[in-house]
């Protein structure tokens, strides 16, 4: 058997890792925006906004990232919207995970006790002020652990963009497999890299949680 020069192939996979990272970061950014918009929409006092948010959430939770990605990439062009694989990927990942995040936002807001709301009314705060200064600061720490899990789900979801030929880590592993005929090394390498990224996310979220709960000690019994 001929020795294969692995350094070049590892380089390919690391290039893919950068694409995966990019997708994860941009997808998460979009997901956070979508989650807060739809989560706050769900608790809005206007029925139209509540319905719009509910429709968005049910629609994106009803199908998988894969189906949504293919739809965005292959069907939207017929409506005159042509997206690059990267744009389609960020859009599908962000909106899909955002829909799950919206339920987290809503749940956390609902979990803040009635007395907090009543205190806001007593202090004559507007709804906006109450949300901004009283409810959300307390709800945020409740959201973070689940947001961490959602971010890991998003990271795992990025693998499907390889199926619309975006050269992420999974795609590059397939390239290496095609060129070397070796299967074990590329796939084990990327599994370990994905796991390492997931570990970084979960550690990062724990750190963030620690930071935002600091100073809230004793606020809630």
């Amino acid at each position: 058997m001929i020795m294969i020069d692995w350094s070049g192939y590892i380089g390919l996979i690391l290039q893919g890792a950068l694409v995966t990272l990019q997708l994860t970061v941009m997808g998460c950014a979009l997901a956070v925006v979508a989650a807060f918009a739809a989560g706050l929409g769900r608790v809005s006092r206007f029925m139209a906004i509540r319905m719009l948010a509910t429709t968005y959430i049910e629609f994106f939770r009803g199908t998988s990232i894969f189906v949504q990605l293919f739809w965005a990439y292959f069907v939207l062009p017929f409506a005159g919207i042509t997206l690059s694989p990267m744009q389609a990927g960020v859009l599908a990942l962000g909106l899909n995970v955002g829909a799950y995040g919206a339920e987290v936002v809503r749940g956390a807001i609902k979990a803040i006790g009635r007395e907090q709301r009543e205190a806001c009314v007593a202090l004559n705060l507007t709804r906006r002020q109450a949300m901004r200064h009283v409810i959300l600061p307390q709800a945020l720490p409740l959201m973070l652990p689940t947001f961490g899990n959602n971010a890991i789900e998003l990271l795992k979801g990025t693998a499907v963009v390889s199926l619309i030929s975006l050269n992420d880590m999974t795609f590059q592993a397939q390239v290496v497999r095609a060129q070397t005929g070796s299967t074990l090394i590329p796939f084990v390498t990327i599994l370990v890299l994905y796991f390492a990224m997931a570990w970084v996310i979960s550690r990062g979220m724990r750190w963030l949680e620690h930071r935002v709960t600091r100073g809230l000690d004793g606020v809630r019994a």
Partner: peptide, 21 residues
């Protein structure tokens, strides 16, 4: 933890491409 932290797609590739080897 490892299985939960890695994509299903890659696990499927693993089962489908690596095991035959």
């Amino acid at each position: 933890e490892f299985i939960r932290g890695t994509p299903l797609l890659v696990q499927l590739y693993f089962l489908f491409f690596v095991l035959p080897d």
